[in-house]
Write a protein that binds this DNA or RNA. Sequence first.
DNA 1: TTTTGTTTAAGGTATA
DNA 2: TATACCTTAAACAAAA
Length: 448
Amino acid sequence: MLSLSSTDPLARGLGGAGGRENNNKKDNICWSSISVDDSLTSLQWLQEFLILGANVPQQAHQQPNLFGQQVGYDPASPSAGDPSSIGMPLTMGKPTAAAYSRMESLPDGVANGHCPDKSYDMTNVHIKPPYSYATLICMAMRASKENKITLSCIYKWITDNFCYYRHADPTWQNSIRTNLSLNKYFIKVPRQKDEPGKGCFWKIDPQYAERLLSSAYKKTRIPPVHINPTLQSRLRVNLQPQPRCSCINSESQRFLRDFKDATGADQNWDPHMAEGTMLGSWPVDSGRGGHKRKQSMGTRNRASKVPRHFSPPPFPVDGQKEIGPLKGDVDWVGLLDSALSRELNRESVEPLRPIIKGDDLTVWGTHITPGEDPVGTADIHGLVETQRSKDFDEETFLATAFLESPWPQEEKQGHNNFLCSSTVDLDQLFDLELSVDGDTSLQIETLL
DNA sequence: TTTTGTTTAAGGTATA
DNA sequence: TATACCTTAAACAAAA
């Protein structure tokens, strides 16, 4: 009955980019003059990218955000004409615990107990967010006030919150779809007959939602961060301090400082080293592979592929900062309370109508035939718990719990598509994560 | 025609 | 070295 197999949807379904629509949309991507080496193992383009990034003049189409940073857009970029992407409120985010755990360690302990790349900048269009696609989907779902979300809204949420995907080759959307189909965390909810629109809704399987909540905060992890030694030296040369905060106005600086003080973030963190870490350490993403793919993928067209960690600038580099205001204040207790209770409460109000794929379910590689006692299913859940799932649980929960509390404007809207305009402050979310072993954890445990 | 959803195959990395 | 995990790519079908 129990069978852990490599065909586990989770294992297979966290993928990235690809698909036929790639061909349809490639032309929308405005690549810079940088030529991308077919071999992703080549760092030549990275060097060019770093050099280019330091010299690109500021462009028009810029607007300040809350932090006073200039927001730049490439008129030719896919989202340039998308009002939702202009002035998009964006906040800095942090990679997940699971992602941290898979990073290499920085030899000199730069992080000092803090995760260097917790500073992952959601506005960075060059570095792929260190969140798995499954996590991104979960984030989007959690951000939804409704307990279901359409594919298009998932796209929208991701592009709204991660500049990388806003400008990246849209093939990542194929991976999102693949993930939704293969990942057992996600279940499909068909539209009502009177609900117009395309496609089904998707939601987090309440079974896993519950487990996500119950398993959260049980483990503290000080992520090892390691920089590739070879690149480290190169990056020390190439990575000059970037003017990422140079244009922040005083009010915004105070806001940011207060926020960081409150959350205890970034106290021992060197942003430049952190960026170097992000660039230099190979396994930055929550996954483990795919970013040093060989040409042996056959005849596949590699030219348009977006490197996992280093994306050639699709538009002038100074347009990489697209930060907007944070939305609302954060009531941590309320957030957590909401996060911990909502998913469970939902199910008592709105029964699920999941679509079972095929004749059986697969739970962590365990096939469950229809008609089996649900209790037995739950037992199986317990039996087949793996570290992998814990990582994902933590990653997902920590990355999404924060999103549970709707923003004020979303409450006003109160309809399914609010998510299409919602953004979140993942920075806060991951600051929460960092506080797990501190006082916050006690509060969380109390809530639990 | 485009979007959405499913499925298969294969490569890279981490780990036991 | 084998295996697991994750990512990427692509083909195809169905629906809007």
